[in-house]
Amino acid sequence: MKWVREKGGAIFLLLFILCSWELLVKVNEVPGWLLPAPIAVFSEAIKVIPSFSTDIFSTIQLALLGLTIGSLVGFIIAVLLHMMPFVQKMVYPLLILSQNIPIIVLAPLLIIWFGFGLMPKLIIIGLVCFFPIVVAALDGFKNTASELKYYMEMAGASKSQLFWKLELPHSLPSLFSGLKISATYSVMGAVISEWLGAKQGIGVFMTLSQSSFRTDRVFVAIFTIMLLSILIFGLLRMVERIVIKGKMER
């Protein structure tokens, strides 16, 4: 029952939006190619699921692979920048700039450079995913409780012991916040990368549906993307609960 109390509000709101949507479409007799009603979208979803599921799995694989690579790269960059504050001052503005590159423009370029293989797709997802991790990790490292740091130094900890025994575990909650943001981005990144040319995937399904004016299928794809993002998010939250012990005292 606790679950109902916590999530009840959100579910109620969602149902309310879906019902109003259904009602508006029905009352105004909006044609299906312009805006399909939710029930029509769901029944279409059930119809296409058998063939669509291979697309979904392909996108999940791509998103998870990209997320893994992106967050590893992000974490390594954060550690390096943390160890070299001087370099951090130089590189940090560039990292922010990297987030201002419009992916839609970059994507065709990547295809020219790397072809239609896995590489350009992973670069796109990685580019979207690494930044939240870098920011979160650097913040986490920097905000290490000063009295704990002082204690470790007095106790004679080396720089690497300070990092592995204190700064890293201390930054885990912050790191997971970044990871959760990246995770939700990763599905979107995977779909965008699939627009550029892939054999299968939600992105491919979306482009095909769009060009044949199957708006209901476009919505199926949109809802699937949302669902996947929430799933990965939830998965990470479970991992977070297992990994982070003894809660922070603030």
């Binding site: 009295e147 704990l148 204690y151 007095m154 004679g156 900890a157 575990p169 885990l172 982070i244 005292e249």
Partner: peptide, 17 residues
């Protein structure tokens, strides 16, 4: 550093340990 045993004003225990 590290030649004395030290006990600070705040207990400074690591919350995740």
């Amino acid at each position: 550093k590290g030649l004395i045993g030290y006990m600070p004003q705040q207990p400074s225990l690591f919350p995740w340990r």
